[in-house]
Computed example of a mutant assay.
Amino acid sequence: MTESLDSTRAAAWRAYIEASQRLVTQLEDDLRADSDLSFADYHVLVLLSEAPGQRLRMGELAGRLVFSPSRLTYQISSMQRRGLVSKEACPDDRRGSEAVLTAAGLLALAEAAPHHLASVRTHLMDDLDDAEVACLTRVFERLGHRLRAARSTSTTHTTSQGATDARDHR
């Protein structure tokens, strides 16, 4: 049986869960009110705007967003219908496809960014001092790195195990 959290860690966990959910909900509400973009739309637009050629392979984009392939397909299809992105075959590998930022998507991002930044500042950053910002950065970079590595290891293990299982059942 797993050992329970001590009261200090339990309080930290609950505070994190409740505050992070409230923060994401508030940022999403503000973003939708100011731009008609969802938080997921905005994140896709940011990642594509920062990518070389403003395009990313669908698998890489799914990994960076922490989306399943089906969730990304749904997200990109929704954004395509609104003209924010297009989906194109990869120039170097016709089997794959890329999400590509459109001019309309770049304009939507440029219009939404100042309002979103103001929301992030108001609801999070302006309430933190420099030491707290540094602490949050260290903690979440470390956790993010560890969780990405663990997911990569489990995906590799699952894929290899699936291949082994498939060979065993031939």
Rank of each mutant, 00 (worst) to 15 (best):
L106S: 00
R57M: 07
S49G: 06
A99M: 01
F140L: 09
R138Y: 08
D129Y: 12
S77W: 03
Q80I: 08
S35A: 15
I76Y: 02
R95T: 03
G144F: 01
Q75E: 09
D30L: 00
V139F: 12
H145N: 08
A51Q: 10
A89N: 03
V66K: 12
G63Y: 02
S35L: 10
L61V: 07
A112V: 10
A33P: 04
A113Q: 15
F67P: 04
P69L: 07
P114L: 13
S77R: 15
A134M: 13
D93Q: 07
L27H: 05
E98V: 12
R82A: 05
V44W: 04
L72D: 06
R146N: 06
R64G: 08
V46F: 06
A166H: 14
A40P: 01
S86P: 02
S49Y: 09
S49F: 06
D129M: 10
L45A: 01
Q161M: 10
L56E: 02
S77Q: 15
L124H: 09
R121A: 06
L61D: 07
S86F: 01
L27E: 12
A40G: 06
E141N: 15
M79E: 11
R142A: 14
T156M: 11
E28G: 09
A33W: 01
T102P: 00
S49L: 02
A99K: 04
R95F: 12
S49E: 13
S35C: 14
R121E: 08
D93A: 11
S38N: 02
L109I: 01
A118V: 04
L61M: 03
P52D: 13
S152W: 15
Q54A: 11
L117M: 13
P52G: 02
R57G: 13
C90I: 04
Y74S: 14
A99L: 03
P69S: 11
